[in-house]
Amino acid sequence: MMSAVAALLAKELTLELRTRESVPSMVLFSIATYVVFHFGLDRDRVTGDLASGVLWVTLLFSAILGVNRLFVAEYEQGGFDGFLLAPVDRTALLVAKALTLFAFLGIVELVAVPAFALLLLGPPLTQALPQLVLVLALANAGIAVIGTLVAGLAIQTRARDLIVPLIALPLLVPVLLAAARCATPLLSDGGAGALPGNWLAILAIYDLLFALIAYAVFDFLLED
């Protein structure tokens, strides 16, 4: 199981390094979204809940781009059949894909969050960084799990690009809500406030529950 996950993860990362398909477009998309927000809101700097909202909406939409591409290579090149022929647990694919998406999101945020601080954010980010990394990690875990599930659900459909955001966005609303509430005190003027513990707990519980649901139903998405 572990070695299968490691092999699949290595395959994903090599593929991304060679083709550079998802991550660069996600980064570019998020920066373009900041520009759109700048003109849409007509603000030079944002703070507090507005900053948190802008950041999370941007990250969420760029995550949807990654989710859309997640299984495309498998689907088009017959990777599913190859995987099903291999004598490994099917959950390995779920875990590997979720970890891939988690890694992609992390890399995107390495660029997108500093860019946000540079372009739009009012108060300096340095103090709040450790807490923000915690919130980002928890939210990324949720997006990764739900994104993998939705991508697996939508890959066989004709209108994949339409189905993914339609299903993923409602499912991700609680993640967005909790993450935005967590990040609000971190991005407000006058220094970083304390993290709201209950929102962090909601985020963690939501991640955990959806991981269990995904584990329970993912096998059926691969049957053929």
């Binding site: 599930l149 659900l153 939508a154 459909t157 209108a159 299903i167 139903v217």
Partner: peptide
């Protein structure tokens, strides 16, 4: 309904719809 409509294969359609029903 968009999900069901956009999957051609009947068996696959019902399986995916069930997965969707459980998740949702």
């Amino acid at each position: 309904w968009p999900l069901r409509f956009s999957i051609e294969d009947k068996e696959k359609q019902s399986r995916y719809a069930s997965v969707f029903a459980i998740v949702a």
